[in-house]
Design a protein around this nucleic acid. Structure first.
Lengths: 371, 371
DNA sequence: TCGGTTTCGATCGTTTCCGATCGTTTCGTT
DNA sequence: AACGAAACGATCGGAAACGATCGAAACCGA
């Protein structure tokens, strides 16, 4: 163990500086068991990345500076004085609050005001809400409309013909309307599902199941991401359950979740990706009742990370960057408002991140104890 | 122990890295009982699939995200007073000057400085230029690398392993590396080609030809966009020329452009989309010499809009938003610099716009990004 | 049995990392 | 202000690791 990798040393240095605030260089020499010049090199490397700050004789934590001037905002023209931004979200109970907050902060930072209308995954109602906002005098719109079926296509066509700029949030025009010129900010849920699959594969699982929540607009993307990740990792499909379940709390719920657990156990599947925190937590409840241990018997990754941290055990979860997405959508709308003509269509895709907690039995925390 | 399949070795490697967090390569050699080069091969395979991360001398667990939120306040990087941004463009003669200017203005607006290195559509040279910039001390990089072939994949892998943030410009990771976590800003050239086809169709053309410039990295996308637009508009393919021509000025040029004109006239094709202004202008020259009238006998849309306005007659052209794209890429890089850890991967897609001039013979007004 | 393909290992030149040394700068004490 | 000690940066050389190429062995279908 005398010999350590550069990455290990960096990790240890970061940990030391995090716990102690400041670290003297000779202490690091002793801690790492390498020469002083090597420590200096490591420290300069970390300082170049901005992870620590060099001072004479040691290092300290980086001061949390203000974000970069003007942030990731686009090149915009003259600032609108007090833009009124409308937003139509399909729900305000799940997933969307963070998106709305993100939009809210971005609009407020621009000196504007956000007006929200809640809809309910229905194209007709979406359109009604948009009309209300237009009557209210909004200058631009963030919309997460229903895009399925004939009504969805019709709604998108109508949105694209509005005179105020419209930005789609977590929605893209369907293949039937590939060229409708609307800005959009979306999360790549396929990549997100792939992150989960890869994480489980790294932990040694080869048979990785999937549970998606019926009637969620993201289910298809998550299933697609799961499929491509499993096949690109050359993991087996046959016998691995990939179920579409009714939402948590519905009458058939207990029966279906029991079926999920049974199928996993029967097929030697010890890892599942579960779409939507609620369903994952429901699955955890049922495993507790039935004596199935998580993560020993079944590793679980949740998708959404709304309340995954508070479950028992805390769920490792894929986290769409909802707040950022909302902010980004608002910035797109404001930028379009400032430059409605020349500005080309922007389509921004954000990748989710993976937050590792305890529901997969990750030994990463314990393994570095004796550094 | 002596004889193992590759899959078994991979399994053992994953288990080792899982239990220890990091593994040195010689340890794996001893553990697996195979040669070092084989271990290296296995490790690169696993790293390509995103299951482990390669570091010099060994491997570590992939860090999808920070397991522990770091501090109550949003952690950001150092306050870069005067960020130094490097850029590698494959050419400074065509298309790229506008991109570079866009990046330049964005970096300057943030109080930083842009350092440019020109390369030449070659992965080896791209890498050398990047090294030069790193030696120069740049804190972040905008790169438009060559992504084709083995060398291209290798280059992308290397770019993804750099410690400074890298933003891809007009390039996306190839399908072989779908999960490499690099920000990117690209133009949707498929949409651009579709814009041209749709414009010509609106003007009454049903048989719409295509001329692409050989050895351009965008040719494939333009051809794909032309194909999908033609087929989704249910226009005919058969007999319609879709040629890949050598660049303007090459020895065969006159022969080939004559062939293009002949094929169009013979097949009753009175509209073509021509990739790259130079080739379109060359086509116009030849039509003048041969007495073919533009737009009466042949409507021409050019792709790129570098010098299309100055041709005779002025060319209707698809215009990638090069200046904006460069600015956007620079903003992505600066934002990543300010927040290197928590910020998710951003992929931004810009649509080109269509600038209507006289080479298609219509009297519509200039079309805009949004209708 | 044959030919093609895949997989693994040996070798070699190159790159990268690490430590020793030395001269210079910075800090703290008198 | 002067001094010494500590820290720092630069340079060099050895050792380890890396990538590329070639060749041998195993595998597989015909």
């Amino acid at each position: 163990m005398n010999q350590k990798l550069a990455a290990q040393r960096h990790e240890l240095i970061l940990r030391a500086v995090r716990t102690h605030g400041t670290v003297r260089l000779p202490d690091l020499v002793e801690l790492l068991g390498v020469s002083a010049v090597t420590v200096r090199r490591d420290v300069t490397a970390l300082a170049d990345r901005g992870l620590v700050v060099r001072v004479h004789g040691g290092i300290t934590m980086p001061r949390h500076a203000e974000p970069f001037p003007r942030g990731p905002q686009s090149v915009v023209g003259p600032a609108q004085t007090h833009p009124l931004v409308g937003m139509v979200a399909p729900s305000v109970e799940y997933y969307w609050p963070a998106v709305i907050q993100g939009a809210q902060t971005a609009v407020a930072a621009a000196g504007g005001r956000l007006v929200l209308r809640a809809s309910s995954y229905d194209a007709i109602e979406d359109r009604r809400r948009v009309c209300e906002l237009l009557d209210r005098g909004v200058q631009t719109l963030l919309v997460a409309p229903s895009t399925t079926g004939r009504a969805g296509v019709e709604l998108l066509r109508w949105l694209g013909a509005q005179s105020v700029p419209v930005v789609l949030v977590e929605r893209l025009p369907p293949p039937a309307l590939p060229t409708i010129a609307l800005d959009a900010a979306v999360t790549d849920h396929e990549i997100g599902a792939g992150l989960a699959v890869r994480h489980l594969a790294t932990l040694g699982h080869s048979r990785i199941g999937l549970v998606t929540s019926r009637q969620s607009p993201h289910s298809d993307a998550i299933r697609a991401g799961w499929t491509t990740a499993v096949s690109s990792l050359e993991l087996p499909f046959n016998g691995v359950p990939a179920l579409d379940v009714p939402p948590y709390g519905s009458p058939q719920w207990t029966r279906v979740v029991d079926q999920v657990i049974d199928e996993c156990l029967n097929a030697s599947v010890h890892a599942v990706l579960v779409h939507a925190d609620r369903e994952a937590i429901g699955l955890l409840e049922r495993t507790r009742e039935r004596g199935v241990r998580v993560p020993e018997d079944l590793a679980v990754v949740s998708y959404d990370d709304e309340v995954a941290a508070a479950s028992d055990p805390p769920l490792t979860a894929v986290r769409p960057q909802k707040h950022r997405l909302g902010a980004l959508a608002a910035q797109l709308a404001l930028a379009r408002l400032a430059d409605p003509l020349d500005r080309p269509v922007h389509r921004v895709v954000l990748w989710p991140t993976l937050t590792v907690r305890e529901s997969c039995g990750n030994e990463l925390n314990t393994s570095r104890g004796l550094g």
